[in-house]
Structures are given as structure tokens and as C-alpha cells.
Amino acid sequence: MTGVSGLTKRFGTNTVLDNIDLEIEDGERVVIIGPSGTGKSTLLRAINFLDHPDAGTITVGDLSVDAARASRRNILALRRRTAFVFQNYALFANKTARENITEALVTVQKRSRADAEARADEVLRETGLLDKADSYPAALSGGQQQRVGIGRAMALDADLMLFDEPTSALDPEWVGEVLDLMRRVAEQRQTMLIVTHEMQFAREIADRIVFMDGGRIVEQGPPSQIFDAPHDKRTRDFLRRVG
């Protein structure tokens, strides 16, 4: 079981996450939608403490961390059970595509270099980028960089994969290849929590849609319910706007 309970995050006097409760089943694919500035990204970033939450409990697998009392060791343990895909890819600029994937396997997971490289090549094959293994990020297109970013996250074999608007920074021509790769990740019954503005993709990939507004979860349910018969007026308004 994975999820958060009572998760709260304030930036100054602004409450960005207001007592969020969210449970995710193993293998479940949950997509968070909602207007910008409603805390969707902050929720993802609070789960692995990129933004330190002020209160609440975060659970990933058999590990539960109380945000108010989290030690550096707790935070590392949590980060090692999650994988994160960034909006701006955030590939290590001084590492090739292959090294981007092996880096954490060797330094964090303490796997042998040969083992890590074998895993990296496996992932690069899956992402269709084996021929770019020795390229540095600066030499890759946005779509290729994001596929490496997803590959880096896949290789970690994390309990929970977090995707923070993975196609928002991409030129339209690269969006399709990134979504295709995410579909393939989803097919492997990987537990995924995704923030995206790609509504068609959300409808097709998600087991559950979570609609957030103003730092709270307004409503959630299967895609058919949220997209075709939303209960809350805010959900209806939002869907009409992005429609």
C-alpha cells in the first residue's frame, strides 16, 4: 500500500497542500488533474521530499514516514523507493544517456558496473534509444531526453513512479513518443502517480482520476465518471475549459 494522509505543505502563509489523503493500490495508475497552481506538482514533490511537507504521513510499500519528524535517513529511504520524472527532464548534464541510467544503480543501489550497464542497455532498448547510449543530454532532442529521464526512473525498479507533467515542456512533435513510452511502463503494472494536462491520455491510461483544486482533492473516481459525469461544479468547469 502506498499513499499519503494528512499531507500539508505551506509556502509562507499560502497553504499549497491542505490535509491531503490519498491511497494508491499496488500496480494502480492514478492521474492527477486540475487547474495550475493547485498543488498537483507539490503533492508529487512532497512525497519524495523535494519539497519538505509540514505535516502528514507518507507511505511507500512497508515504509511510513511522519513528515514532521522525518530524519535525513527516512528521507533517503523514501527517495530510494520512489522514482521521479521531471517536467524539464533534469538529466545529469555531465553524463551520457547510459550513464544517466547507471549512475544511481551504482552509487545508490551499489550494483556492479557490469550489472548496471546491462540494466541500462535493457532500458535503453525499451525506450528505443540504444543508439543514443553514448550521447550527452545536450545532443538529444527534448523527446529523447525525456525518454532517457523515464528510462532512468524505470531502471530503479521503484515501488512508486512519480511523473510531474512529463510532456509539458516538450514541443508538440515529441509528446507522442513520450506518452507511448509511459503506456508501456503502465503495461508492466508499475504503480504510477502522474500529473498531466493530457486529458485524452489520462482517460486511457488511468485506473483512477484525482481532481485537485485549491490544495485539496475535490473528487476522484474512474475516468468514465470524472470525465463523463463529474459531480463537482469545479470539476465540470475545469473540464469545460480544457475540453
Binding site: N48, L50, R79, F86, A90, F92, A93, E103, V108
Partner: peptide, 19 residues
């Protein structure tokens, strides 16, 4: 984003700086 990516994969502060 280089710091954040290092943290996200679970590196310690020393690993992040060195690598």
C-alpha cells in the same frame, strides 16, 4: 534541477556533490 535529480534518485549529499 541537477540537485533535484540527484536527490530524487536517492543520493546522499556527498554523492550528489562528488558525482
Amino acid at each position: 534541477n541537477q540537485w533535484e535529480a540527484s536527490m530524487a534518485v536517492g543520493m546522499t549529499r556527498a554523492q550528489m556533490l562528488r558525482r
